[in-house]
């Protein structure tokens, strides 16, 4: 599934989870460039688009200052004209912008809109904050691995590689009566010399010991 589709789903889920009168839109910002990423409704999308086009609005400010920004009354808002005008046209009475960090220098803004004039409750603001964090984690994961499937596969590789290399470190410590650091140097040096990964060297060491090989492991792997 494309990242843009995930972002749309994140926004839709956030809106559903936060209340029946809440609409949500997501904007991401990196190196000063803001981009609307996904929205639960066309109206919330248009508001974020107006904000991004103008380069000013609650979401952008919240991301810039890394703090939650509450807009208790859209009609009374005077800081961001383009955003205010669009939000009024859509019939929104209040707004809430919640930032979260996806990665260093890469921010997410969760913009919430409502036609209700009741104030945002403290509980909703905290929940929105936690939700923005969950969304940022999800987006970070997608960007880091391109695909969730790769992330799961990455965990398998990480755990598997780690197990084999750490076992080999212990084997070298025992066989060469050396310290952990010395064992690490042995494996790294062998990997460099052979032009292979540490995992390949580690598997060779363990295999050699299990099949009866003993003695100096450095010589056994050397050219």
């Amino acid at each position: 599934m494309a990242l843009s589709r995930y972002l749309h789903d994140y926004a839709a889920r956030a809106a559903r989870a936060l209340g029946p009168d809440v609409e949500a839109s997501l904007t991401v910002r990196e190196h000063g460039l803001s981009l609307r990423a996904g929205s639960s409704t066309p109206a919330s999308a248009r508001c974020d688009q107006a904000e991004v086009r103008a380069g000013a609005g609650p979401c952008i400010d919240a991301m810039s200052h890394r703090s939650v920004l509450v807009v208790p009354s859209v009609p009374g808002e005077r800081r961001w004209d383009a955003w205010r005008e669009q939000a009024l046209n859509e019939g929104f009475a209040k707004g809430l912008a919640v930032p979260a960090e996806i990665a260093p220098g890469f921010q997410l803004g969760l913009n919430l809109y409502s036609r209700s004039t009741d104030p945002w409750s403290e509980g909703l603001v905290e929940t929105a904050h936690a939700y923005a964090g969950l969304i940022a984690t999800g987006i970070g994961l997608q960007l880091q691995f391109a695909d969730v499937e790769d992330a799961a596969a990455g965990l398998y590789r990480r755990l598997s590689d780690s197990a084999v290399v750490e076992q080999a470190l212990g084997a070298v410590m025992e066989a060469n009566a050396c310290t952990l650091d010395e064992a690490r140097q042995v494996i790294r040096a062998a990997a460099r010399r052979e032009g292979v990964g540490e995992r390949v060297v580690a598997e060779t060491i363990v295999r050699a010991l299990v099949t009866g090989g003993h003695g100096d492991i450095v010589d056994g792997l050397g050219p």
Partner: peptide
């Protein structure tokens, strides 16, 4: 894992 590796070397087992 490291301790497992030491036992691999001590006993020559998998």
């Amino acid at each position: 894992h490291q301790a497992t590796g030491m036992v691999i070397a001590q006993l020559g087992i998998g």
